[in-house]
Amino acid sequence: MEIVKRGRAVTKKRNRRKMTAGDIFSLAMLIVFSAMMLYPLLLIVNIALKSYKEFLLEPLKIVQKIRWENFSEVWEDLDVFHRVWNTIYMAAGACLLGAVIPMLAAFPISRNHFRGAGKVYMFILSSMFFPGSLVASITIAKALHLYNSPIGMIIMWGAGGPAMNVFMMVGFIKSLPRDLDDAAFIDGCSYFRYIIQMALPLLLPIVSTIIVFKAVGVWNDFLSPLIYLPNAKYRTISTGLYMFMGSYTNEWPLLACAIMIIASPMVVLYIFMQRYIIEGMTAGALKG
């Protein structure tokens, strides 16, 4: 906080003097970067508003006559709410599992609460280097009845790759003072209740990093539902767009419209949450 305040004070002083060459260069670079990021998105918006004919004849001009029907035509086929709901609850489940499971293990390990904790830790870390293959994963998923079931998908997403998360948490927990939990246990606090009620709030930076990584991973992952969830009822939004892309390749304006519809809620949500997301990642990355 202090650094930021000092930074602001210094900036204020700096603002009084003329812009240096360095500042102008920085500004120019910022504009270049922003243009690079915005242009492709604006291109899609432009296409989404055109009629098919206008898109074919004048692909690059700014849309002359906005065709609002594109949205209504696309809406029904996309089944947006249903898909987004699927994605949200599956991501929430995966994040919950992905945060809680490692935590339950990281705590005993970092505090060395049972003999052999170190060996268990080594085993967990080594799992980062296990080979695997899609063939094997599909076979196992089917054998365990995780195939074609949303619960199965949540488990696969949530329980996958715990090693990294355990590693980050162990490091973080080591920096927390022991006196608190020693006192709590002596007072007779139940083990798991302690973890959930006392340790979890302290672990929030790491947990939020993990949640962000998992959520972004689930959102972006269109391959896994394609392979493991063939039933259209359970489809997530990324896979939905992938399938939609298949059936609407002929009419690009409709496709662009679909992209806008799908991306917008996430973008809006992101703009609201971005401060928390980036702060959480920052804190997690710093300490981890």
């Binding site: 249903h82 987004v84 949200i88």
Partner: peptide, 8 residues
């Protein structure tokens, strides 16, 4: 959103 989608 969730209520709406459930309704839909």
């Amino acid at each position: 959103l969730t209520c709406f989608s459930l309704l839909l």
